[in-house]
Design a protein around this nucleic acid. Sequence first.
DNA 1: CCAGTGATCAGG
DNA 2: CTGATCACTGGA
Length: 191
Amino acid sequence: MTEKIIEKDFYTQDAVSLAKSLLGKLLVRKYNNGEKRYFIITETEAYLGVEDKACHCSKGKTERTKVMYEEGGTIYIYLIYGMYWMLNIVSGKKDKPEAVLIRGIAEISEYGKLIKHYDGPGKAGKVLEISKDLFNGQKIYNKTTGLFISVPQYKISFKMEQLPRVGINYAGEPWISKPWRFVAKEITLQQ
DNA sequence: CCAGTGATCAGG
DNA sequence: CTGATCACTGGA
């Protein structure tokens, strides 16, 4: 697998366009034992600043949310329900708190064959073996951190679905209805 | 349908 | 310090 890492500038776009752009990109995880695995990003959600009542930053800057105020490309990780590590990529400019939640990934082999889907952010976090200690505040465009995003060498085709976000009923309207969840369907790879 | 599980945060 | 909440998942 050749790795064409995506540069820092890519992450300065707003969270909604970044959420779309990340579909079909390759998430590379180099584990502590040296093993390397490859995952296509298949589902994302955008969280858009202090106004968005579904966004953690709607309550302002806290110990947890401070990394969302960093520049685009910063990794934001938090624990939910005491069990699941959620992986987010901060987007936009410094001091504009936006992020994209990675909700689904599909593992592919080194030769571009689909292996397994991990549908759901908790499952994705588990297979990636991420945690706050390991990656929170790191940069996703830094190839040395063990978790980075690149352009896949294989041509990937899919249909994009746009849906409301899940698990945010507490946010109220209009935020519940914002179609800021993006799913890649019918994924095929050409070698 | 619902319990598990612990960091985080507002409030005293 | 305490109690409530939670961008979820897996098993009745």
